[in-house]
């Protein structure tokens, strides 16, 4: 599942970040910020207008990501994975 489709509040774990195009700087930045396999993430809130951007908690940090940015992050939902 993509992070952009994650149910609100559910605990998930990052599987991978995919490049939207070769040498995608946004995907690289997401990896630099800690979106790497095995990290627990959570969708905390959605923006008020059209549910965009998304408020994502990773570790003790919160990031606002646009849906197109969060769509690069592949996750698995379901408790202790």
């Amino acid at each position: 599942m993509r992070l952009s489709d994650a149910p609100k509040g559910a605990q998930a774990v990052v599987q991978s970040v995919t490049d939207a195009h070769p040498a995608d700087p946004i995907a690289q930045r997401l990896r630099d910020l800690g979106f790497v396999a095995g990290e627990p993430v959570r969708l905390v809130a959605r923006g008020p207008l059209g549910g965009d951007p998304l408020l994502i908690q990773i570790g003790s940090t919160r990031f606002a990501l646009r849906k197109t940015e969060a769509a690069r992050v592949e996750i698995s939902v379901g408790g202790a994975a």
């Binding site: 946004i26 919160r62 990031f63 606002a64 940015e69």
Partner: peptide
């Protein structure tokens, strides 16, 4: 090209 928001709160 897409310019990111990616913003820490």
């Amino acid at each position: 090209s897409e310019h990111a928001l990616i913003m820490e709160l």
